[in-house]
């Protein structure tokens, strides 16, 4: 298994007033290509901070982060932007959709910054991504006309539209009912089978069973890192759930 992510003693400190908040206190691990990793931990343990660093949205205070063997710290800003555009799909805890913008335009956005994708292909891929998350009937709804769960699914579609090799999801099922969250999990498992690397942050321990590995954070440190040999299938759980009455 090729190593795709390597973290070495990552620390992230925030200075708030004259106090130093140590969100990450030295995190090291490697993730191989095609792994499905769940990051768990209590609120405030540093999960989002870690994921932001993995997504090249933030830079660590100290430590090294190698993506595909290249040190992110040494990359130029533009290279990091291209990386985010082509390789990473990031799902934010608070969605971060463009206000007053339709679902389809929100999903198209990453492709707007990719000159290799033409107009027609962009539209078609955005529609496909929205259909995949079950929003085929909400294409032209604006973000303020969607429910929380729908916004979350638009954010997921936006993260998938550029066919990223790594998908980083911060509480991607936090606002979904159990049926829809299993649907999203099933989607992630499908993507995982296609060879994508997925890192999935949650504080719901049940969801850890559906991934191949679980890393637990506490106070900015890793407290456990376990492999899960028997991944539960979200499809099966879905099938066993009582059908929604139409």
């Amino acid at each position: 298994m090729n190593e795709i992510i390597r973290l070495e003693q990552i620390k992230r400190e925030f200075i708030v007033g004259d106090e130093v908040v140590r969100a990450l206190r030295g995190v090291s691990f490697t993730i191989g290509e095609g792994e499905f990793v769940t990051i768990m931990g209590t609120s405030g343990s540093g999960k989002s901070t870690l994921l932001n660093i993995l997504g090249c949205l933030d830079v660590p205070t100290s430590g090294e982060y190698y993506l595909d063997g290249i040190s992110v710290r040494e990359m130029s800003k533009n290279d990091r932007a291209t990386l985010r555009n082509r390789k990473i799909g990031f799902i934010f805890q608070n969605y971060n959709l463009l206000p007053k913008t339709t679902s389809i335009e929100n999903v198209e956005l990453p492709l707007m910054y990719n000159r290799e994708v033409g107009h027609a292909e962009r539209r078609q891929r955005a529609i496909a991504a929205l259909q995949e998350v079950g929003l085929g009937d909400r294409l032209t709804h604006r973000s303020n006309q969607l429910s929380g769960g729908q916004m979350q699914r638009v954010a997921i579609a936006r993260a998938l539209v550029n066919n990223p090799v790594i998908i980083l999801a911060d509480e991607a099922t936090g606002n979904l009912d159990s049926r829809t969250s299993y649907e999203v999990l099933a989607l992630f498992q499908r993507l995982h089978r296609d060879g994508r690397t997925i890192i999935f942050v949650t504080h719901n321990p049940e969801l850890a069973n559906f991934s191949s590995r679980t890393i637990t954070l506490r106070d900015g440190r890793i407290t456990s890192d376990t492999r899960n040999e028997h991944m539960a299938s979200a499809e099966e759980v879905l099938a066993s759930l009582p059908k929604e009455e139409e």
């Binding site: 997504g55 533009n78 985010r84 555009n85 971060n96 463009l98 206000p99 990453p110 910054y113 550029n162």
Partner: peptide
């Protein structure tokens, strides 16, 4: 304020500073 968030979002999905 509003636009800074917009800029952050655009950058996070891959817009370069120049763009």
């Amino acid at each position: 304020t509003e636009r800074t968030r917009e800029i952050g979002l655009r950058m996070s999905i891959g817009a370069k500073g120049r763009q």
